[in-house]
Design a binder for these strands. Structure first.
Length: 646
RNA sequence: GCUGCCGUAGCUCAGUGGUAGAGCACUCCCUUGGUAAGGGAGAGGUCGACAGUUCAAUCCUGUCCGGCAGCACCA
């Protein structure tokens, strides 16, 4: 007798082992039809899975959240089958479900192109129409390896050898087609439905390693209904409208050009935005007990050798030398060679090293809006979010070991305040020692331990990010989530027991001895470029008033109002606002449209009536209402409203 | 860096083996209009760069540069 307990608490008894399909059928014909998979003691199984012991089970239907992953994995298989039917000789490799769809990696001489999608999708639809039962079989290693070899599937055959020896190998068959796969899967290809769409092709590496063969990855997405698919495609379109590269150009914030790839030309409005953000942060830093410094762009290579960057980071550094020096360098590699700084830390230690430091000066919080250059791979560049020259809101806190905890707490508070002011939610990852690093394991143990306990004291929930620490120390990564749910790593806090020692930093301790300070590297924005790009996309260009580069435009209705408009603008400017005037010979409709499209938060229209009554007609971005205010009140209220949060 | 796609006016894009077009933007003129495009005229391009094929290349081929998507990278 087998007792099956269902999610509603009821128990059904069967006198022999039963499949998921049998259980669903025993509950009702509707459920039998809707059933997609089975959950046995919390684990997803095929609907055909036979339950032979007392268990808690659930019937998975399209209403379960896990069902979508199942659907997507199936879509990947159907894609692969369609591709192999259409393009014989194409090899299959892997094809998992992803967060918003699925992909399958193929090996084929000829590249796939988006032009092939219609044909492949059509074949996929045919396979769905065939409603092929999807069945699971257990094969032994030799059999499956032979099968793949015979079918010219060398990648799959190779993979068989790499599976753990004790692993049971299952294959999933649909019609003549099969793939080696852990499952589970839907009961038949018909259950996939047709709310799928292929979205893009790209290269990908075999097993994710750039040293391996490059495969062709075909991406797609699938949902249970056309409605959901359409909604998804609509979301993608909406995200494209927020693209900071597009908005940056439209709003005249910045541009980038070919002869300085990965760098940014900031235009007046973009630079105004930058300075507003920088001013806000600077006030926060000052209030937080930081001092600010500025250090050289170019340093002798010997500094980078001492710091370890020359050895660990040179691939990403821009080297520089004048012609004379270059000749000498070629002749004698021991010659001086300069490098643009990729980080500010070694420079900050140079400042720390000037004069004798006392424990009384610690913690010393040294900040710099530090412009750094890093030679990023060309394929990594992305607008202003990933650039080769960026400005870090960097700071290094020189402290004693027992100050780490307090300083971590202080920093987390500061970062939290800033993210809250900017309207971001965030979470925190803990990145521990990377494979390539400096320093002994004992020191890493110490640094990781210190950062962990300080995080705990700061009340952080940490997600482990193994092997992703900096080469000199472990780090916290603060990841913020924007308005449309995308994650961006921005803030960081890194504990460093190495660099101060390497670069000879020390202070006189209370007992008169010399000690090496610990250094905390920390940033809130990470880089201004990146943060500004994120803010543009987060707000879709409709910045909060305090951040908007142009906070208000005073637009005239008739030219007679020109001098009054100038008067209104100058009063607002005197009250600290950023204001433009629009005195052009255009209709007010035209001006309203243009400034609305430019995302100006406030449009103040002035005409003859306003001159007489000393008023302005205020229109707010996103609203069609007009509010006629007396000029003095408008200046007071709007300038108050436009004040930064700190 | 790798794979694929792309590069024509400020922007969005059409087009052709015989040196190019549209809409918007821009300039000028008319219009002075109370909240999302008033009308007219004009100007604007070494068709990403360099080679090659050809009588002739923006178009075909190659190399390079840059962009886009994904992969890899992001200390």
């Amino acid at each position: 007798m087998i007792n099956i307990s269902l999610p509603d608490g009821s128990v059904r008894s069967f006198d022999k082992p039963v499949s998921g399909a049998d259980i669903a059928a025993s509950i009702g014909p509707g459920l039998a039809k809707a059933a997609l998979a089975l959950r046995v003691d919390g684990k997803m199984k095929d609907l055909s899975h036979v339950v032979d012991h007392d268990a808690k089970i659930g019937i998975v239907t399209s209403r379960d959240s896990e069902a979508l992953e199942l659907l997507r994995h199936d879509a990947a298989h159907v894609l692969a089958q369609a591709v192999q039917e259409l393009y014989p000789g194409t090899q299959i490799t892997f094809g998992p479900a992803t967060e918003d769809g699925f992909y399958y990696d193929f090996v084929r001489e000829q590249p796939f192109s988006p032009d092939d999608f219609a044909k492949i999708e059509q074949r996929m639809a045919e396979i769905v129409d065939r409603d092929l039962p999807i069945t699971r079989e257990i094969w032994d290693r030799a059999k499956i390896k032979d099968y793949f070899k015979q079918h010219g599937e060398s990648f799959k055959a190779q993979w068989v050898d790499e599976l753990p020896k004790d692993e049971v190998i299952s294959v999933y068959k649909q019609g003549d087609w099969l793939d080696m796969c852990l499952g589970p899967h839907l009961p038949s290809t018909g259950k996939l439905g047709k709310a799928f769409k292929l979205t893009k092709v790209s290269g990908a590496y075999w097993r994710g390693d750039a040293n391996n063969a490059q495969l062709q990855r075909v991406y797609g997405t699938v949902f249970f209904s056309d409605k959901e698919l359409k909604a998804y495609l609509h979301r993608i379109e909406e995200a494209e409208k927020r693209d900071h590269r597009k908005l940056g150009r439209e709003m005249a914030l910045f541009h980038q050009q070919e002869d300085s790839a990965g760098m940014v030309y900031w235009h007046p409005k973009g630079w105004t935005f930058w300075r507003t953000l920088e001013g806000y942060l600077r006030r926060k830093l000052e209030a937080g007990g930081y001092v600010e410094v500025k250090t050289p762009q170019l340093n002798d290579r010997r500094l980078w050798e001492k710091s370890g960057h020359w050895e660990n980071f040179r691939e990403n550094m821009y080297l520089s030398e004048n012609e004379e020096g270059l000749k000498e360098y070629v002749a004698d590699p021991a010659r001086r060679m300069f490098a643009l700084k990729p980080m500010n830390c070694p420079c900050h230690i140079q400042i720390f090293n000037q004069g004798l430091r006392s424990y009384r000066e610690l913690p010393l919080r040294m900040a710099e809006m530090g412009s750094c250059h890093r030679f990023e791979p060309s394929g990594a560049l992305h607008g202003i979010l990933r650039v080769r020259n960026f400005t870090q809101d960097d700071a290094h806190i020189f402290c004693s070991e027992d100050q780490i905890e307090v300083e971590t707490i202080r920093f987390c508070k500061l970062l939290g305040d800033v993210y809250r002011d900017l309207g971001f939610e965030y979470f925190v990852k803990f990145a521990d020692r990377p494979p390539v690093r400096i320093g002994s394991d004992a020191i890493w143990d110490q640094a990781e331990g210190a950062l962990k306990s300080a995080s705990k004291a700061a009340g952080l929930d940490l997600i482990l990010n193994p092997g992703e620490g900096a080469f000199y120390g472990p780090k916290l990564e603060f990841v913020l989530r924007d308005a449309i749910g995308r994650d961006w790593q921005c803030g960081t806090l890194q504990v460093d027991f190495m660099l101060p020692e390497r670069l000879g930093a020390s202070y006189v301790a209370e007992d008169g001895s010399r000690k090496v300070p610990v250094m905390l590297h920390r940033a809130i924005f990470g880089s201004f470029e990146r943060m500004i790009g994120i803010l543009i996309e987060h707000h879709a260009g409709r910045f909060p008033l305090w951040l908007a580069p142009t906070q208000a435009v005073v637009a005239t209705i008739v030219n007679d109002a020109d001098s009054y408009a100038n008067e209104v603008a100058s009063q607002l400017r005197a009250a600290g606002m950023r204001v433009d005037t629009d005195l052009r010979n255009e209709k007010i409709n035209y001006k309203v449209r243009e400034h609305s499209l430019a995302h100006v938060p406030l449009i103040l229209a002035v005409g003859r009536r306003d001159i007489e009554g000393k008023t302005v007609a205020v229109r707010r971005l996103g609203s069609e209402k007009q509010e006629v205010l007396e000029l003095g009140a408008a200046v007071t209220n709007l300038s108050e409203e436009a004040r930064p949060p700190f």
